[in-house]
Every structure is written in structure tokens, then in C-alpha cells.
């Protein structure tokens, strides 16, 4: 009897069909385990990211009686639009948003043209000191902007076109409290993280085949024509990448806005930072627990437009990241 079982086991060990089956089940089990594990991790981290947002959304609908009601969690008992109404009013929403979007898209457009030009120049042409100059681009990426903030502040406080204007009109111009300094810096390729964008474009253009340009050149296209009509069109993936980054960062930027003391009324994110005190003083809502609700509503109002832009562009954006770019 015992001998019989041992024989059977030995038979099974040599039975390839059985072994294959066994291997397949182990494999299925393993991959099932792995995907469960992956699912849990992704779910957890998505929750970490979304948690505060969910919290903000639910809080922005709280009425003042819900705040002090300990039994209220996530779902308000008396949901209200009041927070949004007041935040909307105090932000002067459409006007401020319009100004901000105009400002941000203007800067993004300039930044796209200037940085892609520089990236193309570095990728395709040979000129003396090219390596040294590109090292300088890397320096502008790495160097924290706050190191040069004071001279920049002074520069735009007493602005002058290479000392020419002073000779003619006898005075210097104060460009602060306007958006002009930011436009100027962006126009000269040193705006918000321009160095990074130059780097991205250069990597992308280096990856494009040279034959495109050679064909254009033989067909009689000039170098500028080639660039604007052919290369830039081919670079759409990285153009989208840069557009998304540039818009989002400009929209959120506070450093330059503060440094150049731009007017609060025109910049929506800057205005958001003063929303709580505005509500406290103008509407006499002194309790921070309650005035905070208005801030939450304001945050949602401010985030919404950039979120929409991001969601529209994000499909192309991911494609751009995958096909281009950043790596080369």
C-alpha cells in the first residue's frame, strides 16, 4: 500500500503535464498577488494626494453651524453656497481671473518662442563657445533665483536701457508694481525656469532626424523658415509639455509676483493669499474657523481654471513626455 503511494508520487514528479499545470497556477497566483499589491499601493497614494482635496471640497460647503458640530464629518448637515458666493465676490473673480489668464498666457507664449529658439540653436548649430554657453544654461537651472533677487529688484526699481534713457530724459524708470519686469525677463529667456525649458527643447531637437532640415534646405527654405514652419511643427509634443509646465508654474508663482510687488488686484493666486484677511475685515467674520471656510471655497475657485486647462492638455502632455523630450 505504502509502496503504491510512493510510486504514484514518483509518477507525478515525472508527469510533465502535471508539472506544467502546477507552474501555471503558481504563475497566476503570483501575478494576482502582485497586481493586488500594486492596486493597494496606488490606491493608498492616490488617497494621500486626494485626501486634502476631498477635505477642502467638503469643507467649502460647510455652513457655520456645521463647523462646531462634532458629529459632522465630510458631509455637511446644512450645505450652503454662501462660502462660494462671498469668496467669488471678494476675489472679484472674473475680472481677476481674466487679468491673470491674460498675463499667464502672454508669458507662456513668449517663453515658448524664446526658449524653443534657444534650444534649437544649441541643438543644431555650431558656434564658438557653444559648450561653455550651454553650461551657463545649466547654471541658470541650478542657481536658486533668490540669490539674485536683490540686484533684480534694484535693477527694475531704477530701470534704464543701458544708460541711454537717462541721457535723453534725465531720469530712471520705476518698473515695479507692474508686470513689465516679468515680461522683460521672459523675453530675454531668463523667466520662470526658462533654463529648464531650453534644456527640454534642446534634448528634443537633438533627437529629430537631420534629414528633415537638409531636405528643406535643398528645397530652398531659409533657416528661419525651416525653424518656424518645419521644426516647431515637429516639436509639438515638447511644445505641449513646456506649455503645461510653464502655465501651471506661472499661475502658481508667488516669488516673482511678490518680488516685483505686482498689484494684488490683478493676480488671482496673490489675491487668494489675502482673502482670509479681506473676509475678516470687510465682512467682520473674525472667527478663523469660519473665515477658513471662505478660503477653502476660494482655493477651489482659483484651482478650477488651471485644472480644466491641465485636464484638456494632459493627454497630449503624457504623450509628449513619452515621446520627447525630457530624456533625449
Amino acid at each position: 500500500m505504502v509502496r503504491n503511494i510512493v510510486d504514484q508520487i514518483r509518477d507525478l514528479k515525472n508527469d510533465t503535464v502535471f508539472i506544467n499545470k502546477q507552474a501555471r497556477y503558481i504563475h497566476i497566483f503570483k501575478s494576482l498577488l502582485f497586481s493586488t499589491f500594486k492596486f493597494i499601493i496606488l490606491l493608498g497614494i492616490s488617497f494621500i494626494i486626494l485626501g486634502p482635496i476631498i477635505n477642502i471640497i467638503s469643507n467649502s460647503f460647510f455652513s457655520s453651524s456645521d463647523v462646531y458640530n462634532p458629529s459632522v464629518f465630510l458631509f455637511p448637515l446644512r450645505p450652503t453656497w454662501e462660502n462660494f458666493r462671498l469668496a467669488y465676490l471678494r476675489l472679484d473673480y472674473w475680472k481677476t481671473l481674466g487679468y491673470t489668464l491674460l498675463y499667464v498666457s502672454g508669458l507662456t507664449l513668449i517663453q515658448l518662442v524664446i526658449t524653443s529658439m534657444a534650444g534649437y540653436g544649441f541643438a543644431r548649430f555650431d558656434f564658438p563657445f557653444k559648450k561653455l554657453l550651454f553650461a551657463c544654461v545649466i547654471i541658470t537651472i541650478v542657481l536658486p533665483t533668490h540669490t539674485i533677487m536683490l540686484p533684480l529688484y534694484q535693477h527694475f526699481r531704477n530701470w534704464d536701457l543701458f544708460g541711454i534713457l537717462q541721457v535723453i530724459t534725465g531720469k530712471k524708470y520705476n518698473l515695479l508694481s507692474k508686470e513689465t519686469p516679468m515680461y522683460l525677463m521672459t523675453l530675454f529667456g531668463t523667466g520662470l525656469r526658462s533654463g529648464l525649458f531650453i534644456y527640454i527643447f534642446r534634448q528634443f531637437f537633438r533627437g529629430l532626424p537631420k534629414e528633415i532640415e537638409e531636405a528643406a534646405f535643398i528645397d530652398g527654405a531659409g533657416m528661419w523658415y525651416t525653424y518656424f514652419r518645419i521644426m516647431l511643427v515637429n516639436a509639438i509634443p515638447s511644445v505641449v509639455t513646456v506649455t503645461v509646465f510653464s502655465m501651471v508654474w506661472q499661475y502658481n508663482d508667488m516669488f516673482y509676483v511678490r518680488l516685483f510687488s505686482m498689484p494684488t488686484s490683478r493676480n488671482i493666486t496673490f489675491r487668494l493669499s489675502t482673502l482670509q484677511s479681506t473676509v475678516m475685515f470687510l465682512d467682520q467674520i473674525k472667527d478663523p474657523m469660519i473665515s477658513q471656510l471662505y478660503v477653502y471655497a476660494g482655493v477651489l475657485l482659483v484651482l478650477l481654471p488651471i485644472l480644466i486647462i491641465y485636464l484638456i492638455l494632459q493627454r497630449y502632455f503624457m504623450e509628449g513626455v513619452e515621446r520627447s523630450g525630457i530624456v533625449g
Binding site: 524664446i114 526658449t115 529658439m117 534657444a118 534649437y120 540653436g121 544649441f122 543644431r124 548649430f125 555650431d126 558656434f127 564658438p128 557653444k130 554657453l133 551657463c136 544654461v137 547654471i139 541658470t140 542657481l143 540669490t147 539674485i148 536683490l150 540686484p151 533684480l152 534694484q154 535693477h155 525677463m185 523675453l187 530675454f188 529667456g189 531668463t190 526658462s194 531650453i198 533657416m223 528661419w224 525653424y227
Partner: peptide
């Protein structure tokens, strides 16, 4: 080609000299 290439990076170069190099020295 060298000249064209330099023209392409010229805006950046001016900005770099004007805002970065000058500002660093001043800092």
C-alpha cells in the same frame, strides 16, 4: 550657420548677461 545659430540663442544670451551675470556680481 554659426551666425544664425548665435542669433537663435541671442535673446537668452542678452538676458543671461544682463540679469544673471550682472546680478551675481552685484550680489
Amino acid at each position: 550657420r554659426a551666425i544664425t545659430g548665435f542669433l537663435f540663442i541671442l535673446p537668452w544670451f542678452i538676458g543671461f548677461a544682463l540679469y544673471y551675470v550682472k546680478s551675481l556680481i552685484q550680489t
